[in-house]
Amino acid sequence: MFHWLEKNPFFFAVGVFVVIAYAGIIEILPNFAERARPVKGLKPYTVLELAGKEVYKKDNCIACHSQLIRPFKSETDRYGQYSLSGEYAYDRPFLWGSKRTGPDLHRVGNYRTPDWHANHMWDPKSVVPESIMPAYKHQFTNLADLETAYAEAVTVKKVFNTPYGKEIAPGKAAFEKYKKDILLPEALKIAKAMKRDDLVKMVEQGKVPEIVALVAYLERLK
């Protein structure tokens, strides 16, 4: 039979396809419905947090940091409660990572503070002298892309029914209103907690530096 396949490329290709597709169908599809349910009380990311998640993606923190606490005592002692599937229900994409050059961050919001992050991201060695993490000073001057983050919120609300309220709606006007009423005050609170006057001043002028959004995101990881 195999030798016949080797003479008939079409059927050969079909054979290969069936054999490789088979595992995917059995392994992946059945669990799709079940694994997307949020844990009770889980709120979708605010737009500021989404903007921070974009910074996390842009500077590719996933290269060194995981967001997945495995159910071992050694991990729960170090990082806190092990991770649950439902906690990731709004994570598009998932950011588990596959390498811990630095520590896990899934619950870093529990045991670090905005001003600690401010010091650490500006110069990691100032708080952890032997750190090999790069300093991310450019995040203190680059502005976060709030509009794209807002576009993401609108999209996931529309396409995936992510439970946002009326404040998330398509169009420029809705975005400007959200920015003024909700986003900037949220950012100002973070900037103040980071204890850096330059950041506070920028936010007061309506500009949100990347670091403020990033810290909002890191604070949310609990």
Binding site: N110, P114, W116
Partner: peptide
């Protein structure tokens, strides 16, 4: 000085 997070249940 600033804020120290709580370590409740840890």
């Amino acid at each position: 000085i600033g804020q120290m997070p709580s370590f409740v249940n840890r």
